[in-house]
Design a protein around this nucleic acid. Structure first.
Lengths: 215, 215
DNA sequence: GTGCGAATATATACCCAGTGCAGAAAAAGT
DNA sequence: ACTTTTTCTGCACTGGGTATATATTCGCAC
């Protein structure tokens, strides 16, 4: 049951970690575009070819650290209590993540994390890769809405893309502010109220916005 | 007044067009990834270096054809009548574009256009590039909402990302169906009703979705 | 522990996208 | 016709990513 990993497996994990750490260290120090994969491979003491066996592309050296959150929204919707709407469950979960300073909200000011986020947003190829994660998250969330909230295909997809777009925008906004020097604690109240306002818009719609003044 | 373009200018335009056409022709015939820029340059009878003077990257050979629509939503919002909400103006405009079989809605079944859309969606680097246009469109729309609808920064951004996400999803859905063989006329009624339902969701919000059965 | 098969690592040599540079070609102005 | 300025081209180079063939290393049996 202990299921001993075996030397081969352990070595693979160590190599994976060594490459990833060498990459992040070099990227944060010199900039993503200024560091070649050859340099990363050398720092990690592996061949260039081996590096590509572990990470299919240079971008993955960075974005693999974000990969686990793909299905998070879907999980929240699926595991919500019976008397809670999907949107309400997501709102509570996001607020809780803010309170926990979950990096996935952008509201974590550990320097290494701030620098990582800044790098991702400033490097267009990395940002593009993040968008592909977004697409996966959208699909998972749409599936969860279809199956646990009884939504038809179209409504589920539309709801999912709106929710993901809003989450992403909130998260970027937090990360940008921290990158500009604000501390997580300073930003926290604003992040909460922005989240509440954004969810209110999601819940109540945009229909009333920009209506002609009724004076 | 006639402002004669001059030989130089005319030649540039012809070269630009020749490169673009050669590229599209080869890409559609053999696939985007199967054709190198060297082959495109050869077909257009220009040097590789000249090709890159006209198109900064290989992807631009394709996506420059979509570049004009970046600010369309923003324009619609800005030029709406005084008694019309932004969302209503956008809805009317999108429905009109559907009726006109505007390629920007995905609802145009001219074979070359269908094939082009299919290629863009199937080629991840092209799809990524399209997402960057989306980002530009979002920013423009957010600006228009701020300035002509009196929205605060946060509401404008949230509304813009939601609207763009919905537009994009509707458009992709149409294009995918046409790529699968449906004709534009067959798809039209469904496209209209999907658009109406999507805009209803945008206008009225997602708050009521997935609420526990009230029986 | 010896030896064998499978997995993994490496070196080498490619392809392709994109850039810098120096000089040829060609259009524009005189 | 001559000069200036812009554009085009060839060449060489960087860097990401891949194919192939060979060398290492681990796991496992005996």
């Amino acid at each position: 049951m202990t299921n001993e990993p075996g030397l081969r497996e352990r070595k693979k994990q160590r190599t994976h970690a060594a490459i990833s750490e060498a990459a992040i260290e070099l990227f944060l120090r010199h900039g993503y575009d200024q560091v070649s994969v050859a340099q990363v491979a050398e720092a990690a003491e592996v061949s260039r070819r081996t590096l590509f066996a572990y990470f299919p592309a240079k971008e993955d050296l960075v974005v693999h650290r974000f990969a686990d959150h793909e299905a998070e929204s879907a999980r929240v919707v699926e595991s919500r209590a019976a008397d809670v709407t999907p949107l309400e469950a997501l709102r509570v979960h996001y607020l809780d993540a803010l309170a926990r300073r979950d990096p996935a909200t952008g509201l974590n000011d550990i320097p290494a994390i701030v620098a990582l986020y800044r790098m991702v947003f400033e490097t267009s190829s990395l940002a593009a890769r993040m968008h592909r994660f977004q697409a996966a998250a959208e699909e998972a969330l749409a599936g969860a809405l279809r199956e646990t909230a009884g939504l038809d295909e179209l409504s589920a997809r539309m709801a999912a893309v709106q929710i993901q777009a809003v989450h992403w925008t909130l998260t970027i906004d937090n990360a940008m502010r921290l990158a500009a020097g604000e501390s997580a604690d300073e930003r926290y109240p604003g992040a909460v109220s922005d989240t509440e306002r954004a969810y209110a818009l999601l819940a109540n719609g945009l229909g009333h916005l920009g209506a002609p003044d009724s004076r």
